[in-house]
């Protein structure tokens, strides 16, 4: 081939510089800032000390929030698999003439703003919301049940956000299965259920695990559902970062928490990539 060595680099230059200057350098800055000191006046003083990290692990307050984030992330992952697999399977196996419309249904939630999907739980679970209104009307309860501002309502908000990602991942991996394998299994005498258990399910697992990783990362990085639907004790790690940076302008400490979150996710993503390969996630997101 012709030696056009500079050409791909010229094409890549804008993207690489965008990611380099707007992502890699800023993340390095977070790391540097996490060692700085904060003067009582609020000014940041360049330093190299581990005080911000020590502060995080000094008592149970901050680690507890970290553990809560991990627990909620695991809960979201499991619920998303349970709720998402069957609809994805339905869309995959459906031979209805509305199949195109069904596929649109997978994408539709992505197009509605996250904040709208989150805040609407207030319309549903609030004191005069849909559920309470209905229960009062049929006379099952005399006074509205408080449902909002606890971990359950936070979880509802999260599911609303995460479930579409999980369904898309599972659906894409199901769609990638060669259907003749299924026919072969049926020809050899498998029942529908056996064919599913022996062929479809194992072959769709890469999509399931990719969905799990994505849901985990997304949960760890969001502060909106706890902020809008949670009570004072439902903060997650991202809320902590938001409050430190936007609320108290404590940049060094906010940076240190970001570094802790980033390293934790790095370990998880690295382990995942080592054993399962990360490409499945990218493959699914390609499905649009």
């Amino acid at each position: 081939m012709k030696s056009v060595k500079w050409k791909p680099w010229a094409l890549l230059a804008p993207s690489i510089s965008a990611v380099f200057f707007l992502l890699i350098i800023p993340v390095c800055f977070i790391v540097v800032y996490s060692f700085w000191l904060r003067a009582p006046s609020g000014a940041d003083i360049p330093a190299f000390q581990f005080g911000n990290y020590a502060k995080f692990f000094a008592d149970f307050f901050y680690p507890e929030i970290l553990l809560r984030t991990l627990r909620i992330a695991f809960e979201s992952v499991i619920i998303c698999v349970v709720m998402g697999y069957i609809p994805a399977y339905f869309f995959y196996r459906s031979e209805s003439r509305f199949k195109q419309v069904f596929l649109l249904l997978i994408m539709l939630p992505f197009w509605v703003s996250f904040i709208i999907r989150t805040m609407s739980w207030i319309n549903i679970m609030g004191d005069s919301g849909l559920i309470n209104h209905f229960l009062l009307k049929i006379g099952l309860i005399q006074a509205p049940i408080p449902m909002l501002y606890n971990e359950f309502s936070v979880l509802m908000g999260l599911l609303m956000y995460l479930l579409p990602f999980m369904m898309l991942n599972i659906y894409v991996s199901l769609e990638g299965i060669d259907k003749s394998l299924l026919e072969a299994a049926r020809c050899m005498g498998c029942t529908e259920w056996q064919a599913f258990r022996e062929v479809t399910l194992p072959l769709s697992l890469p999509g399931v695990s990719a969905g799990c990783l994505l849901v985990f990362v997304l949960t760890a990085g969001t502060y909106l559902p706890p902020m809008i639907l949670g009570g004072p004790g439902d903060d997650m790690i991202a809320n902590l970062i938001y409050k430190r940076v936007v609320g108290t302008l404590d940049w060094p400490f906010g940076s240190a928490i970001s570094v802790i979150l980033l390293s934790l996710l790095f370990v998880i993503v690295w382990t995942y990539n080592r054993y399962l390969g990360i490409n499945q996630i990218f493959k699914s997101l390609q499905g649009k």
Partner: peptide, 27 residues
Amino acid sequence: TINTMLLAPIMIPEVVLGVALLLFLRF
């Protein structure tokens, strides 16, 4: 490596992305 680098923002929590860029601007 470069492909992974360009896709990395998907795997970085948005809250960190937000703080990082703002911090850089502040610097």
